[in-house]
Amino acid sequence: MASISVRDVAARARVSVGTVSNVLNRPERVSSETVERVQNAIAELGFVRNDAARQLRAGSSRAMGLVVLDISNPFFSDLARGAQQAADDNGSVILLGNSDQDARREGFYLDLFEEQRVRGVLISPVGDVGERLSRLKARGIAAVLVDHRIPGSGFSSVSVDDVAGGQLAVEHLLSMGRRRIAFVGGPSTLHQFIDRLEGARLAVAAVPDATLEVLETESLTILEGRAAGDGIVGRAPADRPDAIFAANDLVALGLVQSFVMGNGLAIPEEIAIVGYDDIDFAGSAVVPITSVRQPSELIGRTAVELVIGEIDGTIEKGRDVVFQPELVIRATTTGPVTAL
């Protein structure tokens, strides 16, 4: 069966091809009676518009590309939901790419989105993407960094102050009288790891008898957290940390599983834990996890709004939006509090 064309719709509706085009793209220019007649013809014929051809003529599409580090992490799925909601409000769609913390996969998606002539790209990068984003910018494709900043780069960004978040988490642990702090997460190349660790170090440096041990993991997953927990349990009690700042909530969940379900360590009496992101699972864990909250959906929504603002000229390029983190206290740290 031959595909139905715009000419077929025009003939059925008894209007010009240009009128059909206006109904599809600029319906405000057409009378409501004509719009209804064309829409009826579309429904009767089963016409499906060729958006690929339309975007070739226009030079861009209605789509925006979003590249996240790990879609299995609820933080990024919530972020994607916020981005899609904002895109829906503006007649756009989100094409989602999961780099899985792999620079080659990240490059593949950036190439794909460039080929698709997307309106803009939102990216939480694995590594240095400045050169790639500059190429997109030269092609007229707006780019916004998500959960990351490159100061002085000229690219807009939406992020949370992770240094402040790391400091907030560890100051809370120190306020409980804990002094042997461990930071668990990784890999060390991730900017989230670097910034949160910097905040932890600032907090520990302010307390003379406090120490900070860094236990790097290969990724920020529950399994890696569980493995790190098993390693801690295998130490002599005097050699264990008395508090842990986990680089994200998935790692914190793995630690809780190791300590409580597998090895019977008391939380927070023997080891207190603070996670990061405040995903839904943090509050529903077997021991609800104290966490540093990021406004994940708001980050995604704001990133899309920056892209659209750059495209229509209402927002200046190179704008950095930085949200402040919030500590949510739950059972993994609700022990006695002592003054520093």
Rank of each mutant, 00 (worst) to 15 (best):
S32C: 05
E213D: 11
S124F: 01
V126S: 00
S219T: 09
S16I: 10
Y276C: 02
Q324E: 12
I315E: 05
V23W: 15
P237Q: 13
G234Q: 08
I94A: 03
R117H: 02
G107P: 01
G254V: 03
Q116P: 00
K137Q: 15
V23I: 14
A138W: 00
S159L: 14
D280F: 08
G65P: 07
G234T: 00
G254M: 06
V160H: 08
Q294A: 08
A331G: 02
T333R: 11
E316N: 04
H191P: 02
A169E: 10
D239C: 07
Q294T: 15
D249V: 14
G254I: 03
V287L: 05
I232M: 03
G264K: 03
R7I: 12
G234K: 09
Q85A: 05
S3F: 04
P237N: 13
P74E: 10
A210K: 12
V160G: 14
N90W: 02
I267D: 02
D280E: 14
R180S: 12
L56R: 08
R57C: 00
V6E: 09
S291P: 10
A138P: 01
Q116N: 01
G300A: 10
I271F: 05
R81Y: 13
A87K: 08
Q257L: 09
A143H: 11
R12M: 14
G309T: 09
T332R: 03
E131N: 00
E326C: 11
S153Y: 11
E106C: 00
T302S: 12
L56G: 06
N248T: 08
G18Y: 05
D128V: 00
V118P: 06
V158I: 15
R149D: 07
V20S: 15
A339H: 02
P125D: 07
A285N: 08
G165C: 05
L253M: 14
S284Y: 11
F113G: 02
I123W: 05
R135W: 00
D147G: 11
A206I: 09
L79E: 07
T290Q: 04
G275C: 12
